[in-house]
């Protein structure tokens, strides 16, 4: 077993890890069944934003529309599920005393922290892939396929993506969702190296995500200057591939900002962990 294998094995032997998957399973099934049962009403509501300039007829709710809608849960719900595990990666071992056990074995601290971070990333990736597979799979089953019609925020306009384009773009959106969620995971992971309890990193990371999101959306000019420095500004990167046309330069800018935050948070976690005195 490699070190990453050991850390991943440990992560997936804890029931807490499956809370995220269970929550996603429950939420997606609930959402899609409710939409299915109220399809006419939901179609009307979905079309309301689009129908100011167009007359929309027929069913515009399909697997791709449902996937685009579900991706909005990435603002709060999924980050919470990510922090549940990421915030626990180091702190839980410190609290239970197994960190001592780990750090007196031959692998260096730098290898251990990289392995733990990798396991956290694997969890984040698998959770988003599970979300994607479930909402697209169930969406196809319940609503079928078709073109993706959605309202684009910037610039505000209705977007129609033919099915042949909607499929790869939706998959790309989920791929970017993994990147966005990895930053939340990295932040919780950083906090996890600082303390010996799991609650602090989870609450700390979620508080920052919520505060940054609020600051990022408040319509005050005075806040404009700090928005580029908030990682939450770039977290809705998943929306960009669903625009038409896609501003690839913007996608690159967002992706680099998120990768930069990942590197920053992990770098800080690495620095703290390799120098940490284990007193407990």
């Amino acid at each position: 077993m490699t070190l990453i294998g050991i850390e991943t094995f440990k992560t997936f032997r804890r029931w807490r890890t499956y809370l995220g998957f269970l929550a996603v399973l429950g939420a997606v099934i609930l959402l899609e069944v409710i939409v299915k049962l109220n399809l006419a009403h939901f179609s009307q509501a979905y079309a309301r934003g689009l129908s100011n300039e167009f007359v929309v007829s027929g069913n515009i709710i399909n697997a791709w529309a449902i996937a685009a809608f579900t991706l909005n849960s990435l603002y709060i719900h999924v980050p919470f599920l990510i922090t549940l595990v990421a915030g626990d990666m180091v702190s839980a071992e410190a609290a239970s005393g197994t960190l001592r056990l780990l750090l007196i074995r031959p692998p260096s601290r730098s290898r251990i922290i990289v392995a733990k971070y990798s396991a956290m990333m694997i969890y984040t990736g698998l959770l988003i892939i599970f979300l994607a597979a479930l909402c697209i799979g169930l969406g196809l089953l319940l609503f079928g396929t078709g073109d993706l019609i959605r309202f684009q925020v910037m610039p505000p306009q209705m977007v129609i993506l033919p099915q042949s384009i909607a499929v790869p773009r939706t998959l790309l959106a989920f791929l970017f969702a993994i990147l966005a969620m990895s930053v939340v995971g990295s932040l919780a992971f950083l906090f996890s190296t600082m303390v010996d309890n799991s609650i602090g990193p989870i609450i700390g990371a979620m508080a920052i995500v919520i505060v940054f999101t609020i600051v990022g959306t408040l319509p005050f000019e005075s806040l404009e200057a700090i928005r580029p420095y908030l990682f939450t500004t770039y977290m809705d990167i998943w929306q960009l591939p669903l625009d038409n046309p896609v501003n690839w330069l913007e996608v690159l800018k967002y992706a680099l900002a998120l990768i930069g935050h990942d590197a920053l948070f992990f770098g800080a976690a690495f620095f703290i962990f390799v120098r940490k005195d284990i007193k407990s």
């Binding site: 032997r13 239970s96 197994t98 001592r100 056990l101 007196i104």
Partner: peptide, 13 residues
Amino acid sequence: CGIVEKPDFYIYL
């Protein structure tokens, strides 16, 4: 091999 204070193990394993 070190056994430092309490014998802590992964209790879920």
